[in-house]
């Protein structure tokens, strides 16, 4: 992979402006980490979300997850998320847009479900806000203006036999598509939890 292709920034200039991610994910992202101010849509995998939150919160970042009432904090902790720095807003109701905007002001990563409830105007405002604040926005669903979309496919589970053993991990393909530098689709194999 060539970094020179993806931007005109040098590695050092980028270092302070990205949040750490798993090395496998660096393969499919157009940045050497999660670029602050970027929007990365995640499709079809809560475990991928947790993997992303784990690398960032372990380094001191603060995260919020909005609109996922069933999210298991235990699974998050097992995946390596610093749960003391993860706030949950399970039921934002009709104020989803306002809640996400308020969180984008103060947290490093904001993930939210119910993406289709946010209108075009609010979407543009949010994008401007996260770029200005350096927040990483993680819509959990379709998000037309995302810089990158990561989609999980073809999960394979390991560990469970016929009544023996127990589930240990799954392998998924992560496909990335996106605008600009990230426009070329790529994919990578990822172990979750890993």
């Amino acid at each position: 992979m060539s970094l020179a292709r993806v931007s005109t920034f040098s590695g050092e200039e980028f270092a302070g402006r990205t949040l750490p991610v798993r090395p496998e994910l660096r393969e499919v992202l157009p940045w050497p980490g999660l670029r602050r101010g970027a929007t990365v849509a995640l499709r079809g995998s809560t475990s991928l979300l947790l993997a992303i939150l784990a690398s960032a919160t372990a380094e001191g970042s603060w995260a919020a997850v909005v609109g996922l009432p069933g999210l298991s904090v235990l699974a998050a902790a097992e995946a390596g998320v610093a749960v003391e720095r993860m706030a949950l807003v399970p039921r934002p109701g009709t104020q989803l847009g306002e809640v996400v905007a308020a969180l984008a002001d103060g947290l490093d990563l904001v993930a939210f479900a119910g993406t289709t409830m946010i209108g075009a105007a609010q979407t543009r405002k949010l994008a401007a806000r996260v770029r200005q604040r350096g927040t990483v926005l993680l819509p959990l669903g379709p998000w037309p203006s995302a810089d990158v979309e990561l989609r999980c496919a073809n999960a394979r589970w390991y560990g469970a036999g016929t009544g023996d053993g127990h589930l240990t991990h799954r392998e998924v393909e992560v496909h990335a598509t996106g605008r600009g530098a990230a426009a070329r689709p790529r994919s990578v194999q990822l172990c979750l939890p890993g």
């Binding site: 919020a64 993860m86 949950l88 934002p92 306002e98 809640v99 308020a102 984008a104 947290l107």
Partner: peptide, 19 residues
């Protein structure tokens, strides 16, 4: 930011999990 969300939705709207 989290207190602000509590202002929008009420105190029992923002949670943190303890294991």
């Amino acid at each position: 930011a989290l207190v602000r969300v509590q202002g929008l939705l009420g105190p029992e709207s923002v949670w943190r999990g303890v294991i």
